[in-house]
Every structure is written in structure tokens, then in C-alpha cells.
Design a protein around this nucleic acid. Structure first.
Lengths: 129, 129
DNA sequence: GCGTTTTTGACAATCATTCTCGTTGTCACG
DNA sequence: CGTGACAACGAGAATGATTGTCAAAAACGC
């Protein structure tokens, strides 16, 4: 039942790319970047790899209004994002208070195995004007 | 700049339906229900109406993993949802602490015009076993 | 090397949502 | 009450991201 994760050129390429780029990018976006670099990786593989990484908790997935999934390599551990509506700039924020609040509220209703998603949108200083 | 919202049979139908049903439903779902009731409303119109209501803040939109937008008429004011992964049961929860926290964090980074989305997922008592 | 098993990737399929554009219904005003 | 302007409607086509398919290629253990 354990899937012995094999090391492949494509997987390395996706990981390496994610390590370099800043901010969130869509699967299609990442795929295009790989092609520009000369890496020959299929779109299908990019999707699969990203899903795998997301399942493994190594990258974050965001679903902004607009229908595209955005992926981003980000720091370990649980955190949330503050995203600028204008330029897309992203700031990672930690919210211990929120974590415990979410857990408490869930417990009050008898919910277990709790997770949550939280995103904050706003206009950053540069885009506010 | 003001769009004089006209009162139409279709709009009433969608609103009325939302007032009756419990929980979240997709646009397609609502459209099917309207047809069963004998209301003849186009799918396009359902989408447009839902978008309008969502913009007006009269209904909530949720984007669960799965790609379908779910709409729900819910209580006035800002609140969040605690959703069961198993049966989809939804509980509305208010989190004043979270609201102020989000605002504070955003302000710290110079962000203005802030909004946020928060969803908590878990297993409800019935589904936990 | 060799065989087994996973992974890959081109292409087709899916499916919610959006667009198009001619028709219809509302509303304001005469 | 009539009428004209303009928003709303709706059927079908279009869009576009994501997922499924399956034969060929690559990786790993021996």
C-alpha cells in the first residue's frame, strides 16, 4: 500500500522550479516555464506531480476566484496567506490564535479530525492608491 | 453607474428557492430543482442571478475541492462555515476574534480594504465512527 | 543486463462556467 | 393606455482547466 516514490527527472524539474519561483503559479504556468527552460515535461505529469506534492504537504494550494488552482512552495508548517488583489503579492502569516479558535469551535460541535483554510485578501500599499 | 435591478419572475424564483432549501447547492443543482418545480428558468440565468446575489452579499459562495461552486442563503452578516467532510453538514459559526485578528494582521502589512475567507473541515459526530 | 512495476505523456473526454446574440419582458414617461 | 428604450432572458456554442486512458519509456532490485 506504500507507493515507493521513484525519483525521476520530471519530478526533480518541477521541484526545482518551485524552489526558484516566487509567489503562486498555476499548473499551466509552471508547465510553460518548464518548456521554456527546455525541460520536456508533459502537462499531465505536472498536474500529477503537483497533486503529489500537495498531498505530501510540501506545497500550498490556493483556489482564488477565477477557477485556476495556484500552487506555491512555501515554508514548512501551517500558515495562511495575505494576498494583494491588485498585484498578487503574497505574505505568509501565522495565526496561532486562529488555529486554536478553529479547533475549539469544531470541538464544540463535536467535529474531529479538523483542518481549515483561511485566506485574507486586500490591497497592498502599492496598489491601494 | 447604478444598475437599476429589474424585478423578474426568474429572479424571484431563484430567491424563493434559496429561501426554502437547506444547506449548500450548486448552480446546476438549483437549476434542476427549479425545473422540477415547473419554473422555466435558463441555466445561464441561474448563474447570473446567483452571481448577482453573491455580489450583493445576500448569499454565500463556497468553493470546495471538486470544482463546483456552492451557493447558500445564510444569515445576514459575516460568518464562517464548519463543514463535515463525510455528509456535508454545515454549521455556521461566528468568529469575532478571527475578524479582528485578520484585520490586525492585514494592517500590520499595510493592506487595506480587507476581506477574508475561512472554512473549517472536519468529521461530524455521526461520520466520525 | 533483466524483468517487474511505476511513471510518463499525447490525446481525448469531462464538465462547470461564460459568451453570444436574437428575443422577450419591465419600466418610465407621454 | 400606448410605446420606446434598454435590461434581462435563454438556447446553444465556446472556453478552458482538469482528469482519464493506455501504450511506451524509465527506474529500481537483483
Amino acid at each position: 500500500m506504500s507507493s515507493p516514490v521513484r525519483h525521476t527527472r520530471q519530478r526533480s524539474a518541477v521541484s526545482a522550479l518551485l524552489a526558484e519561483v516566487e509567489g503562486f503559479h498555476s499548473a499551466q504556468d509552471l508547465h510553460a516555464m518548464l518548456r521554456e527552460r527546455g525541460e520536456r515535461v508533459g502537462l499531465t505529469t505536472v498536474y500529477r506531480t503537483l497533486q503529489g506534492l500537495a498531498d505530501a504537504g510540501e506545497i500550498d494550494v490556493m483556489r482564488p476566484p477565477g477557477g485556476e488552482h495556484l500552487y506555491r512552495r512555501c515554508s514548512e508548517g501551517h500558515h495562511h496567506h495575505l494576498v494583494c488583489r491588485g498585484c498578487g503579492r503574497t505574505v505568509e502569516v501565522a495565526g496561532p490564535a486562529v488555529e486554536s479558535w478553529a479547533g475549539r469551535v469544531a470541538a464544540q460541535h463535536g467535529f474531529t479530525d479538523v483542518s481549515h483554510t483561511l485566506e485574507i485578501f486586500g490591497a497592498c500599499p502599492s496598489c491601494a492608491g
